[in-house]
Simulated scan of single mutants.
Amino acid sequence: MREHEAQARTPRRDARSAATGQARRGDVSGLHYTPDKARRSANLAAFVQKTRAVDSRGAADLQKLFAEGDFIERIGALVAPHGLRIDNVADAYTMWWITAWHAARGENDDPSPATLTAVRAQAAHAITATGEIARASDAQKQELAEALWVQSALIDVAMEQAKRDPSRLRAVGDAVRQGAKGMGLNLDTIDLTSKGFVPVGVGQNDAPATTPKPGSAAPYGALALAAGGIGVGGFLMLRQRRG
């Protein structure tokens, strides 16, 4: 009887394990979305409109920048060698998280492969753990991800152009810091290590789990001036030169 009971329990355990594995795979697949070009045009137009509310000149520069070609696809080509995909919300948050943290400290460093991998895992875990973004529609995921990609690019260019001007570096860092707080993340309370983000003063991989809600990514109006003035080609040259 004991042998029979053990045999009867095994399939149930296997079924539960399989279900758990499928749930985990489902969670991971929830980080992806299918991009839509018409939706992308609408997202970028909305980003310009939000920027116009705080910086009309920056909004005009952004509008010109986006009109030069598919800005998101060009970003995708730059991040692909690092294993990041533009159709993955966690990847978008990873790049924004790292870029914003460096900017808040007056830096514009590229992360090591180990750091990038660690933060990517943290971002994916945080998003799947909260569930709100993972359960969002493709349209909501695309809106959030593309706003984060654009913000990362604006920060990157602004920091590159301000690197020899300490006062401009501080201004950019302050703008990024305030933008992050508007999304619920205090960049001054975390450190970036080879194991990912940890709370300041903590030496273990204890990751902050704050992630933006769908549609919550705010524009950085002041940073639009930096990117808009150089155009897509100039942005690519700056980024590739750094790479």
Rank of each mutant, 00 (worst) to 15 (best):
D188H: 07
Q161F: 11
V48T: 12
I127S: 03
T10H: 13
F47Y: 13
A158S: 15
Q140I: 01
D14C: 06
Q63A: 14
A175N: 07
L236C: 03
R39E: 11
P214F: 01
A124Y: 04
G201R: 10
K64D: 04
Y220H: 14
T211C: 03
V200W: 02
V48L: 05
A46P: 12
A77G: 05
D27C: 03
D70A: 07
A209Y: 01
V200D: 08
A180N: 06
I133K: 00
T211S: 13
L65E: 01
D91C: 11
V119H: 00
F197V: 00
A153L: 15
Q240N: 07
T34G: 06
N108M: 08
L236N: 07
R242D: 11
A42H: 04
E143Q: 15
M159C: 11
E143R: 12
G184V: 04
E160V: 03
T115G: 00
T10P: 00
W97Y: 15
F71C: 07
R242I: 06
R9F: 10
A118D: 01
R40N: 05
F235W: 12
R168E: 15
R120W: 00
G229V: 10
Q122I: 00
D191F: 03
R24F: 10
M95Y: 04
A38G: 04
F197I: 00
A209E: 09
T20E: 12
Q151V: 09
S17T: 07
R40E: 12
D91S: 06
G69A: 09
E68I: 03
S41R: 12
S137L: 08
D156K: 12
H125S: 13
L223Q: 05
L236V: 12
S29D: 13
A209T: 09
L238H: 05
G131P: 10
A207W: 00
Q240T: 09
G83N: 05
A60V: 03
R39Q: 10
I190R: 04
Q49E: 11
T128R: 14
R135F: 11
G106P: 02
D70M: 04
D191L: 09
P35C: 07
A104D: 11
W96V: 02
A6G: 05
A118W: 00
H125N: 11
G196V: 13
R177P: 02
K141D: 14
P166Q: 06
A100N: 09
A129C: 02
F71S: 10
